[in-house]
Design a protein around this nucleic acid. Structure first.
Lengths: 110, 110
DNA sequence: TCCAATGTTCGAGTACCATCGAACCAACGA
DNA sequence: TCGTTGGTTCGATGGTACTCGAACATTGGA
């Protein structure tokens, strides 16, 4: 596998939530930008990556979405030039019941 | 305040949980050593700092206990040469219901 | 008074993380 | 075919976090 480089139409890395250490899940949530993304996703439905304008560059946004995805928190659907992200609510609730609600219940900026 | 240095009998910094950003709480929990400490504390009761032997030096242990304390997760009682630490369960449960249980429900090492 | 026990702080090393601009890729339309 | 759009990756930078040994402070006992 010398130089696979760009991941264009490659399979996205979306691990099973139970294979992700809880510390990685918590670390993924322990960032302001990512938490804003999760809050937005928690409204339900799918969002194109570009939806999330939280004062960071698109490179940084892409990075955060990758962290969330690889922590097993989101799923991404590729469609055309866009990617649609959604929260893996049920799996999250099944494995860590109450976690997401507790995090979302927190005041946004305190 | 030229040289206060050691904090010996100073007041310990134990913020109100509601004054701590949720990201700081999550970050405090997003570490293996600290999670082991929290698991031990979750048994209930008080533990002297020295109780926690999780393969780190006492300097590192002291650091982690400080992080937990300043995240509003633990309370520390000074008695003689020892310090007794306990989990602030009720406050945690009141502010972030389900969070602790969800974290503790996770498998210890996965 | 001296010493051992319990923790904390300091300084330094290392590693990791968030951030950005630039370069890039793939898909779509004109 | 060419440019635009949506998004990722690369490389670098600055900051932060974990870790340790050494030095220190405090208490309590011999």
């Amino acid at each position: 596998m010398s130089n696979m480089g760009y991941a264009g139409h490659m399979e996205l890395h979306e691990p099973e939530l139970r294979d992700v250490p809880i510390t990685a899940v918590l670390a993924a949530l322990a960032d302001d930008v990512r938490l804003q993304i999760v809050r937005a996703l928690a409204q339900g439905g799918e969002y194109a990556c570009g939806t999330f304008e939280f004062g960071v560059s698109k490179a940084t946004r892409s990075h955060h979405l990758k962290v969330l995805r690889e922590a097993g928190l989101t799923r991404t659907r590729v469609a055309g030039t866009s990617r649609y992200v959604r929260l893996r609510r049920e799996e999250l609730e099944r494995l860590y019941p109450g976690l997401l609600d507790a995090v979302l219940a927190a005041p946004a900026h305190a």
